[in-house]
């Protein structure tokens, strides 16, 4: 190889190294981004599989109250009103409101339930017991603690109370099984009172703001069968 060719080859190789140095980080970033998108779309697909879209646009749009964490008061729940199509069938209606509750509020910091948890099934027994069966992340991804677990249960119970009057009490299952606790603290072996009318009165509490600290009577109280 004559020196001239060698010179050209050297220049060509140097240019290739320069181009690679510029484009490699960009390439790596775009690979990372596409991997993230793939994870997101897998999560989305899993959610869609678990939640067949049951909102039917021909159903009447009604005012629906969803209970998430209060932006103003630590440890309290606050109702958020939305207009959405809701079925007249209590089981479908319960699934619709719980799916919306699981989807979370606009401000993710006010979530009461883990973002990766899903409602697997909802049953309504003739005695008014609503059985909500959630996927494993309801227990494994929920921040452990008395306050966080009780708020999770209360947000489910209060949302059902506000929108599905047929549900009198709530039984929570995790992946089809009875669990001893939700995430180490709150007892899931019994049922929780949902329809508090006629249960413990709590006249001092404004209906839109339920504070566990000031409204023990409005909390989801465990109830055990004799």
């Amino acid at each position: 190889m004559n020196p001239r060719w060698r010179q050209w080859l050297f220049i060509g190789l140097a240019a290739a190294v320069l181009v690679a140095a510029v484009f490699l980080p960009l390439l790596r970033r775009s690979v990372k981004r596409s991997a993230r998108l793939q994870v997101q779309s897998e999560e989305q697909a899993r959610r869609e599989l678990l939640h067949p879209t049951i909102v039917n646009s021909s159903e009447p749009r009604v005012k629906t109250s969803l209970f998430w964490a209060s932006p103003e008061q630590d440890g309290a729940l606050a109702a958020v009103s939305v207009q959405m199509p809701l079925s007249n069938d209590p089981v479908l209606r319960a699934k619709q409101v719980l799916d919306t509750l699981l989807a979370g509020p606009v401000d993710a910091d006010l979530r009461t339930l883990p973002p990766d948890a899903a409602l697997l099934e909802f049953y309504l027994l003739p005695d008014g017991t609503g059985v909500a069966d959630f996927s494993d992340p309801m227990a494994t991804s929920l921040p452990s603690g008395i306050e966080s677990e009780q708020m999770a249960v209360d947000s489910i119970a209060r949302t059902l109370e506000a929108n599905v009057p047929q549900v009198q009490r709530l039984k929570i299952l995790i992946h089809g099984q009875e669990a001893e606790t939700l995430a180490g603290h709150v007892d899931l072996t019994g049922t929780f009172v949902v329809n508090t009318k006629g249960a413990v009165a709590s006249a001092a509490v404004a209906p839109e703001m339920l504070t566990p600290t000031s409204a023990p009577g409005k909390l989801s109280q465990p109830e055990r069968k004799p």
Partner: peptide
């Protein structure tokens, strides 16, 4: 010691009424 709540606060709990 929970995961949530205003840091530096303490709550004392009892069981709710058994209906």
């Amino acid at each position: 010691a929970g995961s949530t709540g205003l840091p530096g606060t303490v709550r004392v709990y009892t069981c709710p009424d058994a209906p």
